[in-house]
Design a protein around this nucleic acid. Structure first.
Length: 964
RNA sequence: GGGGCUGUGGCGAAAUGGUAAACGCACAGGAUUUAAAAUCCUGUGAGGGCAACCUCUUGUGGGUUCGAGUCCCACCAGCCCUACCA
């Protein structure tokens, strides 16, 4: 085997690892030495480490290069930690429920279970071909009935829980105190009361109904008003849905972020999503000709500005609109409501330049200014947030200000802006040109004038509470989690709806008992959505209808969303085969929390928030030992396609005729004229180019080779015509762009070790970085150099290179070796893989240059390399004549004494500028160094005629001489 | 509008407040070869000088410091997320 052939050695070692279960992770008991034979030296105090990858959705397209990035990072880290003697749990599994498999089933009449199985097999094959060190005995699959059983079981725990706001803790529904007046009304009332408090409850809510997918979607699954999957229209529709009361945990989800080792940006995203705001709820009495009738409750974060509330606005969907609307205004109000209902949330917010609304004819009394103020409806007020109504303070809120301007509503200043603001905005107290939204001192606010904002808020709230017309209130943007989907390929709810003798629902819910779990999906021949909000399961009537003890029930026909399975998979890895519990308490106590969780930032909010929520419920119920699941979180950066250079030419539109599948087709095409236009005159979105000044002239983007381009100043230009600038950037990988890199191809061409090494060498793990095929070749060449370092390429069989000797390393080699041990260890521990790899390259370069290559040094080098290029390291380990797997070796420890060279090069600065470098013996003291520097002829020449003001000596680093 | 991230060679990048550009790519020259590929050696931030060497350089402008890519302030540019949340 003369050459480095990853295609041969990689499968060989992969099957070796598999057969010998090299990466099997022992259970805590097994790893206790008392339970094991004595030849293993591990101790029970072996520290545990739980390293988790975000498991993939096994799509039909296979892995993309983003997957190996995170997976390789954790793999390298785990390999290091195992060799350092830690007890590492590092599993992998499949998030396998979800829409694509069902969509595929609808189109091709292939059961989603089958598609899923095939995709999983393909993903497993691809992942295994990367040489990742997972314990495959712990693989989980969210669609496996043995897994679904416990997803359903956890749902039932949530269903059986209510949130005690006093204790700030989820508790069993049986512990819910029932108020006496409810108790008096009997069993039925108690049941309803309990149902109202469960963490899983049903409600009629306006949902996002997507006709094309035949399902409702969660808010989070909608991007720009279209479905995240497939980009279909979404309309709003009220429906009976299951919701999970995640809002009960909002405060804890927010507060507990502080104890987590996550990046500040992810924490901030979660904070924004939870969106806590503190303010007041205030009741405004409605005034009508016939006298006051009822109140409108509003939420505000600025109760201090209530004297400036000159009108109220209700959301068009607000319950009280019909009630309060004056008969003269019924028609316009009704028209407006119809219009608003037609708009999606997106359209409402899209045209945020001009607000719309209409007057209801009704007035409310401002309880502080005592003014009668008009009540409007407008779609800039959202029904879902707060009370669905606001008090508008146009002087101190931008939105209210622009609405007031539009409809000529009065603007009254009640917070005094600073003089500077008046100048900048050219405003006066009587005439605001824009809203002043900062804090300040109250004015025109009766007894509350002169108070600072913070104090004023408190006083107003106190006054509200005293008068019984309002109270302090905390609001969250976070909504309860819409938990049901009208789909087939998801976990069925383990619930039965009781029917009365007429076959009508009684409202009683009967949860299945644990012994009835898992509730499996029925077989289905036809996967077409019903087209109604009832899911496909409703078609399976003999599955839906159930009789128990003479009572008739209907099964719940909704299924759970894809998030359900991923909410707790990290718990199942801990005890994946357990049939009695989702995981044993003892093992959970041992392994939790997850020490390091690596995955894409796209799950920053949803998956991580939902998981934390479930985890907290399980924590409250005593099933898991930690309040948080994931201690440290790292997001890998996305990998972009190769850098692309694009030039632009004037073009003309021509009709080109093409032979398509439907016969010949004529399509307008851009035909470049050859006349270049500089990129600074062009707007280019990556696909279409238009001239900045005018858009009637067709422009053709022309892909330009990097060899035809050079950089002048800040921009790239054509070498042939430097006046013409060229657009240069990297794009996200996408099928339509054709810049997708398939990991399988890289492995075939260069091997998995090259792919691993390249992805780690590209740059910092968390940074976004462009792919470069030449970079892959670079690391491939490095691995070849490593190969030749040890193997004799001229020989027929794998044989040691003749430079390899049994000599001890020279002192220089030893120093470089130990410096490399230090750097690789520290960098790998801090996930700085790119610099660890350069240290390995430097060592390799040094060893290659030596005529004699010391065996002990090579041996250590291979151990250092093994987490990064495990296949190559195993193979060369064998070539060196070592026995067993290199993965079982102990990680080397560097000797600080060996890091020090005999002489040092010390830079001498004069006034902070580097002038001379001195070669000095290591360990020289400050005084000696100083006199050596001053004695230097060149230093002296710089000191001619100057006075020394200061000599700063940093031992073993540098000298700075300050002169005047 | 809000929040965040990032600005260093031709490119990916590196640098506990202490020699800016390690390592890799690309490029150029040389060795090897009938030739090419592969490999090996040398050079490579910009400008000046025959040379030793000198000057400039981390988006811009200030500041702290003996010393700033790194810390502080202001600004500019790019990217990402989010968006009427009262």
């Amino acid at each position: 085997m003369p050459h480095y052939q990853p295609g041969l050695i990689e499968p060989k070692w992969q099957s070796y690892w598999n057969e010998h279960k090299i990466y099997r992770c022992e259970d805590p008991k097994e790893s206790d030495p008392k339970e094991r034979d004595s030849k293993s030296g591990t101790t029970s105090s072996r520290k545990k480490l739980y390293i988790l990858d975000m498991f993939p959705y096994p799509s039909g397209f296979g892995l993309h290069v983003g997957h190996p990035e995170g997976y390789t990072a954790t793999d390298i880290y785990c390999r290091l930690k195992r060799m350092q003697g830690l007890h590492v749990l590092h599993p992998m599994g499949w998030d396998a429920f979800g829409l694509p498999a069902e969509q595929f089933a609808i189109q091709n009449q292939i059961h989603p279970a089958e598609t899923t199985k095939n995709n999983i097999n393909n993903f497993r094959r691809q992942i295994q071909s990367l040489g990742l060190s997972y314990d495959w005995d712990r693989e989980v699959d969210t669609t496996d009935p043995n897994y679904v059983k416990w997803t359903q079981w956890i749902f039932l725990q949530i269903y059986d829980t209510w949130y005690d706001h006093d204790l700030k803790k989820g508790r069993r529904i049986s512990e819910l105190p029932i108020p006496e007046e409810v108790q008096k009304q009997g069993f039925e009332a108690v049941r309803i009361y309990q149902d109202q408090h469960r963490l899983a409850y049903q409600a009629e809510v306006p949902v996002n109904w997507c006709p094309a997918l035949g399902t409702v979607l969660a808010n989070e699954e909608i991007i720009d008003g279209k479905s995240e999957r497939g980009n279909h229209e979404v309309i709003r529709l009220p429906l009976r849905q299951w919701l999970l009361r995640i809002t009960a945990y909002a405060d804890r989800l927010l507060d507990d972020l502080d104890q987590l080792d996550w990046t500040e940006s992810i924490k901030q995203l979660q904070r924004n999503w939870i969106g806590k705001s503190v303010g007041a709820e205030i009741a405004f009495p409605v005034v009508q000709q016939s006298g006051p009738s009822g109140t409108i409750s509003v939420f505000t974060t600025r109760p201090d500005t209530i004297f400036g509330a000159t009108y109220l606005v209700l959301a068009p969907e607000h319950k009280l609109v019909d009630e309060i609307t004056h008969k003269d205004y019924r028609q316009t109000v009704q028209d407006y409501r119809v219009q608003a209902a037609k708009k999606t949330d997106f359209e409402r917010t899209e045209m945020n330049k001009s607000k719309t609304g209409t007057f209801t004819g009704a007035y409310a009394l401002n309880p502080f200014s005592q003014q009668e103020i008009p009540i409007w409806i407008a779609d800039y007020v959202l029904v879902q947030y707060g009370t669905g109504a606001i008090m508008a303070v146009p002087a101190h809120d931008e939105r209210d200000f622009s609405f007031a301007k539009q409809y000529q509503l009065p603007i009254v200043a009640v917070v005094n802006p600073p003089e500077k603001w008046f100048q900048q905005t050219k405003s006066t107290l009587e005439n605001f040109r824009e809203a002043y939204c900062e804090e300040g001192v109250s004015i025109q606010s009766g007894n509350f004038s002169g108070l600072k904002t913070g104090e004023c808020k408190e006083k107003i709230i106190a006054d509200l509470e005293k008068r019984g017309i309002g109270k302090k209130k905390v609001n969250f943007k976070l909504r309860d989690w819409l938990f049901s989907r009208q789909r087939y390929w998801g976990e069925p709810f383990p619930l039965l709806h009781e029917l009365d003798n007429q076959g009508n629902r009684t409202g009683h819910i009967r949860p299945l008992s644990v012994s009835d779990l898992p509730l499996k999906l029925p077989d289905l021949a036809d996967f077409q959505p019903t087209g109604t909000p009832d899911g496909p399961l409703s078609k399976v009537t003999d599955w839906v209808r159930v009789s128990i003890d003479g009572k008739n029930y209907l099964r719940e026909t909704n299924t759970m969303p894809q998030w359900a399975g991923s909410c707790w998979y990290y718990l199942r890895y801990i005890d994946p085969k357990n049939e009695q519990e989702f995981a044993s308490k003892e093992k959970l106590n041992y392994w939790l929390p997850v020490d390091l969780y690596v995955g894409g930032a796209e799950h920053a909010v949803l998956h991580l928030l939902y998981s934390r929520f479930w985890h907290k419920v399980l924590f409250d119920l005593g099933y898991v030992p930690t309040p948080e699941p994931f201690h440290r979180l790292v997001n890998q950066g996305i990998i972009l396609g190769e850098m692309e250079y694009t030039g632009f030419q004037e073009a003309e539109l021509v009709l080109s005729t093409e032979e398509g599948p439907l016969g010949s087709e004529s399509k307008p095409k851009l035909k470049p004229t050859g006349k270049w236009i500089s990129a600074n005159q062009i707007d280019f979105n990556g696909e279409k180019a238009t001239l900045k000044q005018r858009n009637d002239l067709p422009i053709a983007p022309i892909s330009v080779n990097s060899a035809e381009v050079e950089k002048i100043e800040d921009c790239f230009v054509l070498k042939s015509n430097p006046a013409i600038r060229v657009d240069a950037r990297s794009y996200k990988m996408s099928k339509s762009r054709g810049n997708v890199i398939n990991p399988d191809h890289i492995i075939t061409e260069y091997g998995a070790d090259s792919l691993r090494l390249y992805e780690m060498f590209m740059g910092p793990l968390e940074a976004m970085k462009p792919w470069s095929m030449q970079g892959v070749e670079g690391v491939y060449r490095f691995l070849n150099r490593v190969w030749r370092l040890i193997v004799d390429e001229g020989a027929e069989v794998a044989k040691l290179n003749s430079f390899v000797t049994m000599d001890l390393p020279t002192s220089e080699t030893l120093r470089i070796l130990h410096r490399t041990i230090q750097k690789v260890t520290e960098d790998t521990e801090n996930l700085r893989f790119n610099t660890a790899i350069s240290a390995l390259m430097e060592l390799c370069n040094h060893l290659t240059a030596s005529k004699t290559r010391s065996y002990p040094a090579l041996r250590t080098f291979l151990i250092l390399l093994s987490p990064y290029a495990p296949h190559l390291a195993e193979e060369l380990w064998q070539v060196l004549g070592e026995n067993g797997s290199i993965t079982k070796q102990t990680w080397p420890v560097y000797d600080p004494a060996l890091l020090v060279a005999e002489t040092l090069e010390i830079p001498v600065q004069i006034n902070g500028k580097l002038r001379v470098k001195l070669e000095v013996p290591a360990g020289i003291d400050e005084k000696e160094l100083e006199s050596l520097a001053l004695a230097d002829a060149k230093v002296q020449s710089y000191l001619q005629g100057k006075t020394i003001k200061l000599i700063k000596v940093v031992p073993s680093r540098l000298i700075n001489i300050v002169v005047v």
